[in-house]
Computed example of a mutant assay.
Amino acid sequence: MIVLVLSAILALVIGGCVCVWWAERGGPRWVRVVALVTVTIGEVLHEADRRKRKSGSGGSGDSDD
């Protein structure tokens, strides 16, 4: 079951990356919408990770900064 869930997540990530690539080359409107959603989710996750590391609750305590 976990393999199925992880496979679905991987397929969504790869599909999102393909849409970002295609949108940069002038794809149809739906591709640009999916690309925008993909980039926005990536930025939100990046910012959340950044705040988590800054607050010191990053788990192992190692910092790349």
Rank of each mutant, 00 (worst) to 15 (best):
M1L: 12
M1E: 15
M1D: 09
I2G: 13
I2D: 15
L4A: 15
L4F: 11
S7K: 09
S7E: 13
A8L: 13
A8M: 12
A8C: 09
L10Q: 10
A11F: 09
L12F: 13
L12S: 08
L12P: 00
L12H: 05
V13K: 03
I14V: 14
I14T: 04
I14Y: 05
I14P: 00
G15N: 06
G15Y: 03
C17K: 12
C19D: 05
V20Q: 01
A23T: 01
R25E: 09
G26N: 02
G26H: 04
G27V: 01
P28Y: 10
P28V: 14
P28H: 11
R29S: 11
R29F: 10
V31L: 10
R32E: 09
R32G: 06
V33L: 12
V33C: 04
V33R: 04
V34T: 10
A35T: 00
L36C: 07
L36S: 10
T40A: 15
T40W: 08
I41M: 09
G42T: 02
G42R: 02
E43K: 05
E43N: 07
V44Y: 03
H46S: 12
E47Q: 12
A48R: 08
A48K: 07
R50P: 00
R51W: 14
R51F: 08
R53Y: 08
G56F: 07
G58A: 08
G61F: 07
D62V: 08
D62K: 09
S63M: 13
D64W: 14
D65K: 08
